[in-house]
């Protein structure tokens, strides 16, 4: 269990997605943690190319108010 390495893969390459839409909050949510921080590439396994697009999409989504800049769970 401890040393079994799980193959990391790029979600977007697996699904043949070439563009990340900032309106697709459902998708973007899986690449941020509970606080709303963008997860590092070493955790998600996203390819460098798609990670750049992903980061852009998440930041655009934040600007328009679809995703939180910081989500501490306090309403």
């Amino acid at each position: 269990m401890a040393f079994t390495s799980r193959r990391k893969y790029c979600y977007f390459k697996e699904n043949n997605v070439s563009d990340v839409d900032y309106k697709d909050v459902k998708l973007l949510r899986r690449f941020v943690n509970d606080q709303g921080k963008i997860m590092p590439r070493r955790v998600t396994g996203t390819s460098a190319k798609m990670h750049r697009k992903l980061v852009r999409a998440i930041k655009q989504s934040r600007m328009i108010g679809l995703m939180p800049f910081s989500d501490t769970g306090v309403e």
């Binding site: 309106k23 709303g36 934040r62 108010g65 679809l66 995703m67 939180p68 800049f69 989500d71």
Partner: peptide, 21 residues
């Protein structure tokens, strides 16, 4: 109109917003 959605954070004291695409 794209829909009425809850904003991730309040914008101009509004919790919801009507999104137009």
């Amino acid at each position: 109109v794209w829909g009425k959605k809850r904003l991730a954070y309040p914008i101009q004291k509004q919790k919801y917003g009507t999104f137009i695409l």
